[in-house]
Design a protein around this nucleic acid. Structure first.
Lengths: 191, 191
DNA sequence: CGCTAAACGGAACGTCGTTCCGTATGGTGG
DNA sequence: CCACCATACGGAACGACGTTCCGTTTAGCG
């Protein structure tokens, strides 16, 4: 059985095709127009109706997650590796945050969406937090128990802060999110 | 001539009345619904048509500025005062940033709007930057020339960073913008 | 080959920002 | 006191958008 994990029942071939086309089109559209490109635009470029769009991705969060899942997983998996391979836990934390920032600032409107209180993005928040906060927490507690950073900041708060600093990082020459994040991480140090 | 500074030609009484009603209604609506409350809602609560709304405040930025102008001016004017009355320039900078943060986090959606690339908010960005960046720059250069903070961060960048950290600060009980901002300001210190 | 569940397409609805023009009215000169 | 008109008003109308819904098509199986 060389098929992927689809135990219950297969999807129709056209359904699978349309879903993959939508994913490809969305990935391209996100690059140029950000994660808020109109539904009709994506559907039209994929050659499907809006009904098909919504059937495959009921909320914009579902589409965004599907497009970026691989990169987010890669970022999450890099955490333990960095912790094992760095001189200090603080260095590992800084490196990992850099990875996260690099990911975020290249995605038009993603950092904004993570802060949006729009109900259609709730799943997106949840996924990011579920996947990345534990990784960050491990790095943070390692650095804290080594006495390298202060212990009164939670991983959740740190992630939110770093994410916030990435908002508007593209489309604003004159604003260097990386520099501000490194300032923030520096401020985390135990003096 | 006991009238305020209206040299050219007076406005009609109903026009002035409607504008003030709109301002009052908007101030109240911003408190509960944020700066994105629908135009129709504000107009209806003020008992005017949407045409009247747009005549007085062509863009949302105009309305937001009109509502918050006093507070922004007060913040701007506090800068030099704090610089004169503080022990160190860094302390003055920190105090002033606190004022700014206190202002921002109590305004639903304002920090988000400052980062929005929506054309209707352009005037808002411009006003904030025009009014506050110079004040911040004075504090920052004072601290930098005293050797208290690093000199490779611009006032613009710092303001943007602090503003970003205030996004979503209300409506998120696990996120303390003040703490993260103080971390950032701490990271600014010359070690 | 025919049948049916699965999937499709896009018209239609509600919300919102914004524009526009026919109507009403405040203030002034006679 | 009145008539006039610049000023201001109101809300219908338009376009963009997210979302829903249902009549139609089609893939896959027996």
């Amino acid at each position: 059985m060389p098929e992927s994990s689809a135990p219950a029942h297969r999807k129709r071939a056209d359904a699978r095709r349309n879903m993959e086309t939508l994913l490809d089109v969305a990935a391209a559209a996100f690059l140029t127009g950000g994660v808020h490109v109109p539904v009709r635009e994506i559907a039209a470029q994929a050659g499907v109706g809006v009904g098909t769009y919504y059937r495959h991705f009921p909320t914009r969060a579902d589409l965004v997650i599907a497009v970026y899942r691989h990169q987010i997983e890669a970022c999450a998996e890099a955490g333990p590796r960095l912790l094992a391979g760095s001189d200090t836990a603080h260095a590992a934390l800084a490196s990992w945050i850099d990875l996260f920032v690099d990911f975020l600032i290249t995605k038009h409107g993603l950092a904004e969406a993570l802060r949006s209180d729009d109900a259609t993005f709730q799943t997106l928040h949840a996924y990011f937090l579920e996947r990345l906060v534990p990784v960050c927490a491990d790095l943070l507690t390692a650095a804290a128990s080594a006495g390298e950073v202060r212990a009164d900041v939670t991983a959740y708060e740190l992630m939110r802060g770093v994410g916030n600093l990435c908002i508007g990082a593209n489309s604003d020459t004159g604003y260097d999110a990386r520099r501000l994040v490194s300032l923030l991480i520096g401020g985390l140090r135990q003096q």
